[in-house]
Amino acid sequence: MAKALLVFCRAITWVQLLLLLTMLGVMASLVFTRYVFAYSPPWSEELTRFAMIWLVMLGGAVLALFDDHITLFVFVELMGPRVRAARNILVRLIMIATSGVVAYKGIKFADGMSGVIAWGLNINMTIPTYSVTVGFGLILIFNLILLIDDVAALFGKRAQLVPRQDQVMDGSFRPQDDL
């Protein structure tokens, strides 16, 4: 499982890199055309906006896998391993329920946008709106995997289903990773 997740997270990283380079190229050309030709292509800002939305949703999912969203760690560090595992299980259940609702509603919303066309890019709006469904769907799946690991930790075992974070990214918001 850890190897498959590692490959998947690295693939997401490459997709994010391509989206970021696309945004950089489009915005550079936008600045050039705006100031040299006094013309702004109508699709450029839409493309960068949609790419940013996909970047955020994919990045949020990867951060959820590594349990690395910004959070308050004041009391968590004072908890014992079993209490921390129980707390993590409760948090995972809340995240699973929340992301399940958002992913489900996101499908309905994206399907409702099927008749709407982005005027600049002339694409169907389901493409950018499905980013919410994909992002929260991944958060749901990743929290299910983390839930298995937390249940194992509650009973004093480690499932080790998730790869090490430093194999995918080089930074962390968690204080224990700063040591």
Rank of each mutant, 00 (worst) to 15 (best):
G156V: 09
A153D: 06
I123N: 08
Q165S: 05
G120M: 02
A159G: 09
R174Q: 08
V7L: 11
F75R: 04
V91K: 02
R164D: 15
I94Y: 06
P163Y: 01
L78H: 08
G106C: 07
L78T: 14
F50P: 00
V151E: 05
M169F: 15
M27E: 06
A38P: 00
T129Q: 06
A51W: 00
L19I: 14
I70F: 12
L18R: 09
F109K: 02
G112V: 08
I145Y: 01
L17H: 10
T48M: 11
V26F: 03
V76W: 03
F37E: 15
V76F: 11
D111F: 05
S44R: 00
W14D: 12
A86I: 13
R174F: 02
T133C: 04
D149C: 03
M113C: 09
V83E: 14
T33C: 10
I127H: 04
V151D: 07
F73V: 09
V132K: 00
V162D: 01
A97I: 15
T98C: 11
I70N: 10
I70W: 12
V26N: 06
P175V: 10
K157D: 13
L72W: 07
G120W: 01
G137W: 00
I127S: 05
I123D: 08
L144P: 00
F8T: 10
L90R: 06
Q160H: 11
L65H: 01
T33E: 13
A38V: 13
S99I: 03
A118E: 08
L90S: 11
W54N: 10
L179M: 14
T33K: 10
G156C: 08
L20G: 14
L19F: 12
A97R: 08
P41E: 15
M113V: 07
L55C: 11
R164N: 12
S29D: 15
W54K: 05
G80N: 11
L63N: 04
T71C: 13
P81D: 13
A153S: 12
F142Y: 04
M57F: 04
A86K: 08
E46H: 09
N124I: 04
T71E: 15
Y130K: 04
A11E: 05
G106M: 02
A28S: 14
P41T: 14
K105V: 14
I141M: 04
W43C: 07
I107S: 02
I117T: 14
L18T: 14
V102P: 02
C9G: 12
Y39G: 09
G137V: 01
A64Q: 02
R84K: 07
Q160D: 15
I117V: 15
L146D: 03
E77Y: 04
A11H: 02
P42N: 05
P163G: 03
L65W: 00
I117A: 10
I145D: 03
G100A: 13
A4I: 14
L78M: 10
M52G: 11
